[in-house]
Design a protein around this nucleic acid. Structure first.
Lengths: 177, 177
DNA sequence: AATCGCATGTAAACGGTTACATGATTGG
DNA sequence: CCAATCATGTAACCGTTTACATGCGATT
């Protein structure tokens, strides 16, 4: 399970509450890499604390607990990230749809491809704006996280967009005539 | 669950046995989009047959059953693929690793990034060879499936490779000096 | 005859989601 | 005071993975 390491990684950047971690999964992280609801986060935080990988660093209003990574947690995270041969599992419903496109009639496939291209174009444009706001900087620390992510997402969307346009061209009759 | 539609899509291209479907999940499909073991495939085939979306089209040696999509199954698949607003879920351990990189010390992060770049480069090269073999053609039918997939994978790997090189450049001290 | 690949299956365990539930604090 | 947001939790359910299990058919 990677929820463990996702939480460890987020807390390694800066201490947070379960609530804040949950929101991280709803934003960039959940968009590209991993998502988890609060009902998955809270129990996992408990287990991590029990294993000594994280600890409560502060308690606030409304019974909120801020967690921070311990040295053991940092070691565990580093071990996972530095691991050779990480046979990562991929599960992407968008990509599945793209793969199954050839099961459709060309006319239908074109409709879907146009939708994919447009969606990718829009998402890429959105991320380009985010990048403008941040400006160029060393992608490290609490903010660098978002920058690495944004840049990755941008390139990803651009690749999808170009692929969709290529596929449209392939399927459009007379495009090469 | 999308296993349903993955199977429907594969069978829509051409009838197959559970065993053959399982192998498809070990190759391109499992690499980029969705994976499933045979223990997930066989029960699902049974359920799909019960729902009338697929049917046994042939029985062969060693008790093998070849399944084919019915008209109802084709309609179900088309409905799913043509669906507006497909809020697809993404779960990608590789990408999770990339996101968490900023939790590492720069020296460690560089080691991992170099590994990512090299791996992406190698995978892209591999797919470029596949493309050479097939040659340019209309990506449709049993073979077109693989072509759409290969082209998508290639562009994906190229994007990762370029991203990793960009990130390496950002983290390398004196690279911009 | 032995080994490898084909071909299918069940059952328990696991991880995550959905539904349900509660209460505190802040802003309008 | 009401609504929205913050903040946490439990329990049932669902889909997938892992471990276990069986047997046929082809090749050496």
């Amino acid at each position: 399970m990677s929820l463990t390491h996702a939480l460890l990684g987020l807390l390694a950047v800066e201490p947070r509450t379960g609530y804040e971690l949950t929101r991280a999964f709803e934003e960039d992280l959940g968009r590209y890499a991993w998502q988890a609801g609060h009902t998955a986060v809270y129990p996992e935080l408990g287990r991590l604390a029990e294993r000594g990988l994280i600890e409560v660093s502060a308690e606030g209003a409304r019974g909120s607990r801020t967690y921070a990574v311990t040295d053991a947690g940092r070691a565990e995270l580093r071990g996972w990230l530095m691991d050779e041969a990480p046979r990562g599992k991929v599960r992407n419903e968008h990509v599945l749809r793209m793969f199954l496109l050839s099961a459709l009639e060309p006319a239908d496939a074109l409709v879907v491809l146009h939708r994919i291209a447009e969606s990718a174009r829009r998402n890429a444009a959105e991320l380009r704006e985010v990048r403008e706001v941040h400006g160029p900087g060393v992608p490290q620390g609490p903010d660098g996280f978002g920058q690495l992510a944004a840049e990755f997402g941008l390139r990803q969307y651009e690749a999808v967009h170009e692929w969709a346009r290529w596929a449209i061209d392939q399927l459009t009759p007379g495009s090469s005539a």
